[in-house]
Amino acid sequence: MDQTRRGFLKAAGCAAIGAGLALPIGRAVAGAVVADPLPGGLTAKRWAMALNVRKCLQRDGCRACIDACHVEHNVPSIADVKREIKWVWKEPFKDTFQTEVHQHMDSALSEKNVLVLCNHCDNPPCVRVCPTKATWKRPDGIVMMDEHRCIGCRYCIVACPYGSRSFNWQDPRPFITTGIRVEYPTRTKGVVEKCTFCTERLAKGLLPACVEVCNKVAGRGTMIFGDAGEVNSEIVRALRAGFSLRRKPALGTEPQVYYIV
């Protein structure tokens, strides 16, 4: 349904209620409410990400993608682990892939850290449990978050098998130490947030902030972001060529962040 009609129906609905109460509840919108995507935006059938773990580990200790993301999105740096907010960060391989490790595994892999972020699952449990549709899966596969809608019940955090979601236990602004980036909003206390695969950048034709900076510092192919719904896209070719893992595949969530090992 297009915006005009929706606006009209909304207004009509409100007017029907308002008429009875003689209150100006519903105000019709100006008329031409046409909303297009921006020209030049990146689109896909199914956005996905592949991380080349060995390549990433060559730059052990690199935080370029984490810093780029957190600056881009005004993610606060909260020292207290209990209140932390993070969109992308590193975790030990052995904790990330608990069922995959064994005692004879190459410790250059099992003892090292890998990048973790929202998996943008095909079958996301967070979306299933959200009582207000504040989080949902877009047609292009991105699991999106509407912090305006979120009531802060934290059910999505409870349902996420990956610990990918953070809650604002307090006003985050005092903890944004790098200076607030005006173009992107901060969050308010009491809402959940997480990685969005940079929908706002994709809309403008830009790659996600983490991928863009990784391409610069580590070279192309370390973080691959692309259309998993396209048979010959870079990401699909990379996944076909190497062996890759996904986190907790047995849960049936169909994560769309792949780890090439």
């Binding site: 409410v33 909303a35 297009d36 995507p37 999106m144 509407d146 305006h148 809309a203």
Partner: peptide
């Protein structure tokens, strides 16, 4: 309306 269009529908341009 802008909020819902941008965040929820991925639409970014308004035609007045």
């Amino acid at each position: 309306q802008w909020r819902d269009a941008v965040v929820r529908e991925g639409k970014h341009t308004y035609v007045s």
